[in-house]
Design a protein around this nucleic acid. Structure first.
Lengths: 341, 341
DNA sequence: GTGAAAGCGCTAACAA
DNA sequence: TTGTTAGCGCTTTCAC
């Protein structure tokens, strides 16, 4: 049985037969090779239309000389989280402009999910990977790099693995945010952030400490809290802060979910106009509450832009050493950060 | 040149050679066929590890009897929009449990993007499509259906095309929301929603009218606004409402972006505690403002669940007529909708 | 400019 | 249980 397939879709062979040409000519027409006789082009095109032929992109990539599938894989924290979905959208736009489709997966901070997703994406022979890493050791990717898989890390760097990286100026911006509070007369400034196992949390906490240090303010441990997994415990901590003899007059919260909890607690205690607040990461409603929330936000579209430029350059064969780009953040004053001590 | 390929990655042939078996045996091991001698399994597995072999999933699907690629395509409004990204996340989880990977694309309400995305996804031979439609005529999909491509429409039905569909109880829920306002003594209720070219907007407006009618309240055109493309114009309209002699005492806003603008305008005019508001669609900050925003929200995870069940049933060969499922919404009172007239 | 033949990496069919 | 051969739909090579 040579021609009678049990598939529903027509193949390039059937188009060749109907148009009275060869499969190679049909292939040329599909790929827009200019050296084909216009008459043949017309014949082929009408056969394609008649049969409703749709080239099989996966079959095409199999024999292609560079093996490209024109797909990339993106590994995100959680695509339902605005930071991830905005990042995804930025990559979608950039990839689409190059005819590249995107596979995405959410990891929810589970290292084993990272390895699984990378394995599936490699099995699909994506041309490159964009990774917001969750794992603490990326040495396992060494074999993949040797196999020529371009990888760009974004938001957090890889660990034990040298690769192109795009991150925000976490430390510097956290320092700036804290200094902003200090400049409004605050010395009792609480810090609330994600677990210190997470790179961005470590950097931002370091920036907070930098600011205190250069202002000669002593670090007060009772004002510090790390971790966001247990919301109730976080709420308890925040409400505990409010009851302190030496109640902090300002709060720096270093991650969006933490900021939300702080806002919630401040409102519940009716302290939102008494205690200053600056948060890291964007919040959709920052200007809809009263006072508006002063925030440090990451320049997601620039980060995505730089990351995809790096990835596409690697795809084009760029062989220079791995690069790390630090992207400036955006500081927007909306009131909560401008409350004086 | 038979064995010396210029590719970087090892193939099933090299694994067979190293393990001293045949490619078929390697294939069996990869696919977990139980009828292989455990000794051979071990040999094959160690060869796989040694070579860092990664099966090529796209090559595999080419010859597979059903041609499945174990991928699906999802067409969304805009993945950066919370409704879309939550929907995506729900599908990601459901698909992953079946070993299926997901391609997604955003359409931004551009019909030509819908057709383009469907074309690329078909070229990639996705096994099925989940579509939040933007086009007004889906007759062009008829040939695809004949080619056996399962398609499920979600959030909005297809036009001129019969297919499985999962939607929210838009009309009924909008009626309920409006009746909620009426029950608090309101008769001057404004309606603000998306363009009447959009299915959900039509349905929700119909529900609003249903409620007025059954309460014997006459529709007042000066309270009605359709369209959200021009934010400034929308703001002007809302602020115009506040200056009316017969100022509305309540607002029903039928879409999340509209609700945000309404909240913004109410706060600017310091009317948020005077004019009642019920919104359709979820908002992350609904409980963080004062008063909290009373909302009708769609049960996204149930909608995704039903839609993927439909899709997977079609993939398994289910041949019954197309089904339409209407999923109940969730109504949450938070204060803004309980302000009396 | 065009086409025949080979082959990408895998699975299916069938023989051993 | 195992292996051989053919072939999925396309691109590549190379001869015409």
């Amino acid at each position: 049985m040579k021609s009678a397939t049990n598939r529903v879709r027509p193949t390039i062979r059937e188009v060749a037969a109907l148009s009275g040409t060869s499969i190679k000519t049909v292939s040329r027409v599909i790929n827009g090779v200019s050296t084909v006789d216009p008459k043949l082009v017309k014949k082929v095109e009408s056969a394609i239309k008649k049969l409703n032929y749709r080239p099989n992109a996966t079959a095409g990539s199999l024999r292609r000389v560079n093996g490209r599938t024109n797909t990339i894989g993106i590994l995100l924290k959680d695509i339902a989280n605005p930071f991830s979905s905005e990042l995804y959208r930025a990559f979608e736009n950039l990839a689409r402009a190059k005819g590249i489709d995107v596979f995405a997966g959410s990891m929810d901070e589970q290292p084993e999910r990272e390895a699984e997703l990378i394995a599936t994406f490699i099995a699909r022979r994506v041309d490159g990977l964009i990774i917001v890493p969750t794992t603490s050791d990326h040495a396992y990717l060494e074999t993949e790099r040797k196999s020529g898989m371009p990888m760009v890390f974004i938001d957090r760097p890889a660990n034990n693995f040298i690769a192109d990286t795009v991150i925000a100026t976490n430390r510097k911006s956290a320092k700036g945010a804290t200094e902003h509070l200090i400049s409004h007369g605050h010395t009792k400034i609480a810090y609330l952030g994600d677990s210190q196992e997470i790179y961005t949390a470590v950097e931002r906490f370091a920036g907070y400490k930098d600011a205190l240090k250069s202002a000669g303010i002593k670090l007060d441990k009772q004002y510090i809290h790390h971790g966001i997994e247990n919301t109730i415990e976080l709420q308890d901590f925040i409400q505990g802060l409010f009851k302190l003899k030496d109640r902090p007059t300002a709060i720096f919260s270093s991650q969006n979910f933490v900021t939300i909890e702080v806002v919630r607690a401040l409102r519940a205690a009716k302290l939102e106009k008494s205690i200053a607040l600056v948060g890291f990461d964007d919040l959709a409603f920052a200007d809809l509450v009263n006072p508006g929330i002063t925030l440090v936000t990451q320049d997601i579209s620039t980060m995505a832009q730089i990351a995809s430029e790096l990835l596409f350059a690697r795809l084009s064969g760029k062989k220079t050493p791995a690069e790390t780009h630090e992207i400036d953040t955006i500081f927007t004053q909306r009131g909560s950060g401008e409350i004086s001590a």
